[in-house]
Design a binder for these strands. Structure first.
Lengths: 356, 356
DNA sequence: CATAGTATCGTAAACGTTTACGGAGCGCGT
DNA sequence: ACGCGCTCCGTAAACGTTTACGATACTATG
């Protein structure tokens, strides 16, 4: 406590060094846990740093060693996403952070503006070099962003599969499995005409969902009818629209699989307006993200999972592909299809008296 | 096109300079629009930069001039927030970006982990120096963060008022006005016993809401009854709980004001379970954030506003308080109470046959 | 005692940029 | 011919770190 004490926010490591009468290099080594430093002096340095409130200037550090200790999560917040994403991202963020924080890595979210091309935005962010690695969400079927990142040699993982050539790490919800299990269940209940909702955007999840549905039908020997695949936004509005279109069909379905729980709300409303009751007159199965549709009557049969844990998995996948952390997270596979759990409800409770 | 063309991501401004046979200083000046450079050579530099895909290294830049061109939005994603916030933040982010992008400012979101003290988190982020300015959300009644930021002399604006001594810029939803208008409306309908929901966290918005409610009652000469103020989480669950507690009262209310639309969903469900129909047996008024509760029957009377525009306002407030931009955003006042609009529904349609 | 080895520390270069400063060239008026 | 102002550009220092390298002191070993 010879000098000033904790006055101003501290100028830099140099000031800290001369306050301790130690060379700046030693201070740096002490702070960063390097071996070439006496434990005694290391303690002094740490104590002084704490007392004077010194924190390393990130710009200087990253300029020198080319690393920032920051991981970026790019989200698009496109019009449709804003309406639907709910707290999906905040929840997955929690899972990511629970892993990253163990390594003193900070997570920041990079929201691409609506009116900017995601590719250009990402390019800018990569060039800024404020993140060491990236997590890409809302992956599209073919997504140029992966090529960009691969070329820039910046580690990344994707939340969602894609058809990209680059063999990158990803984790994805098992919407193929959801579609299969849903169809199986409905067929077991006697249904043959099963409709499905497809998202209106070209997010890859939608393709996987519909593909799974299609193959499941095939497996059961049921003909695929394009009229039963309804493109709609993944919102209440979209669910309402799905119901509306299906009601207009002359040979309508007896069951429907919705890709998003919010749709169930609108769907319920529309069919009930028409006097049709889910679980009695039509079977409904959906994916459920957050406990939004919990209040629906009759209770919605849905698939769900812990989005938080998905974040944990994704974080570990990413770290395992970063050279600096890969030995701490050894992995055989860096591509995870995340399972979902069926929560039986009443909305598909009835069994169809099959004509056959 | 003398040299290599666009091979690797480019090493730095130095490479760009020698590719053009120009000094590195001139290149920097050309890129940054400084006056001391021939328009002719500026064009050459810009073209070469574009062609070679050069983008300034942010670390070097910010190390030198202490500025990053990045604005941070700190969100807490506390347990409760995650469940409720919906897309509030993504929507307000859109508004912020629409302003920031005009100045080549990028917005990043800084999500404070659940298990970390927001104050410590913020301190760390400030020390990292990756943002030029900050937007603080989920302000608490007394919020140490403002003192920290004021002391660190980093520009900031708050989304939400607080009682802090520092006279900082902020924008806040007019929940005082909402409470007042709601009470006025309900009293005009003949109600005297009006309940209100208060958030369980110590977010300042809740205090303002309840304070406004209280003063409005006073204005109408209605006694304030603490039993009618129900603390609950701002979720469906919370709404359910509010209804439950109110049903348990021997001298229950004839009307209720909910602070959050999601609560209305749970509230509807619980009272309807008890055979009580909103808009006929009890009046319900709520704040509405996103069109979630649109499907409620009877239609919910609620207050709403454009969260996007609130973001725009907040961005302008922040910029007006930053020296580098203040002349572009001259302002008399930097504290905005953001108005909300009443959307009449059916949930408070009936008039009470007043006993008096 | 000489030597090698080890523990600890100081020195200085490097990261990529911005910018203060000065210099070169030029036109122009005296 | 001279000086002045202006335009344009090059030089080099500075921002705050990290780290390769060498220096020093001490210990162990022959």
């Amino acid at each position: 406590m010879a000098h000033g004490g904790k006055l101003r926010p501290m100028k830099g490591i140099r000031q800290l060094a001369e306050h301790l009468d130690i060379s700046i290099g030693t201070v740096s080594r002490a702070l960063n846990g390097k071996p070439d430093v006496n434990e005694e002096t290391r303690k002094r340095v740490l104590a002084a740093a704490e007392q004077l409130g010194y924190v390393a200037n990130q710009s200087g550090r990253s300029l020198r060693q080319g690393t920032t200790n920051v991981i970026g999560l790019m989200i698009q917040s496109s019009r449709e996403t804003v309406e639907n994403s709910d707290n999906f991202f905040l929840t997955v963020t929690g899972g990511l952070q629970s892993v990253f924080s163990r390594h003193k890595l900070d997570l920041i979210m990079l929201p691409c503006p609506h009116d900017e091309d995601p590719y250009e935005y990402l390019k800018r962010m990569v060039a800024r070099r404020i993140v060491d690695a990236l997590i890409i969400s809302e992956t599209q079927r073919v997504d140029k962003r992966f090529d960009l990142l691969a070329k820039a040699k910046i580690p990344f993982a994707a939340l969602g599969r894609s058809l990209s050539g680059t063999q990158h790490p990803w984790a994805d919800l098992d919407f193929d499995g959801v579609a299969n299990a849903a169809v199986d269940r409905l067929v077991a209940h006697g249904h043959r005409r099963i409709a499905v909702s497809a998202p209106s955007s070209d997010i890859n999840l939608g393709f996987i969902f519909v593909d799974g549905y299609r193959r499941a039908l095939e497996r059961h020997g049921i003909a695929y009818d394009p009229a039963l695949v309804i493109r709609a936004k993944s919102s209440e509005q979209g669910g309402y629209q799905v119901a509306d279109e299906l009601l207009g069909l002359e040979n309508g379905p007896t069951a429907v699989i919705l890709i998003y729980e919010l749709m169930a709300i609108g769907f319920y409303r529309r069919v009930m307006e028409a006097g049709i009751i889910p679980g009695r007159d039509i079977a409904v199965v959906s994916f459920r993200e957050a406990p939004r549709a919990k209040f629906l009557q009759p209770a919605l049969t849905c698939f769900r999972t812990s989005v938080h844990d998905l974040g944990v998995e994704l974080a570990e996948i990413l770290l395992s592909s970063m050279p600096a952390y890969s030995q701490e997270y050894p992995r055989k596979t860096r591509q995870t299809v995340w399972p979902l759990e069926l929560i039986p409800g009443e909305s598909d409770a009835f069994r169809l008296k099959t004509a056959k």
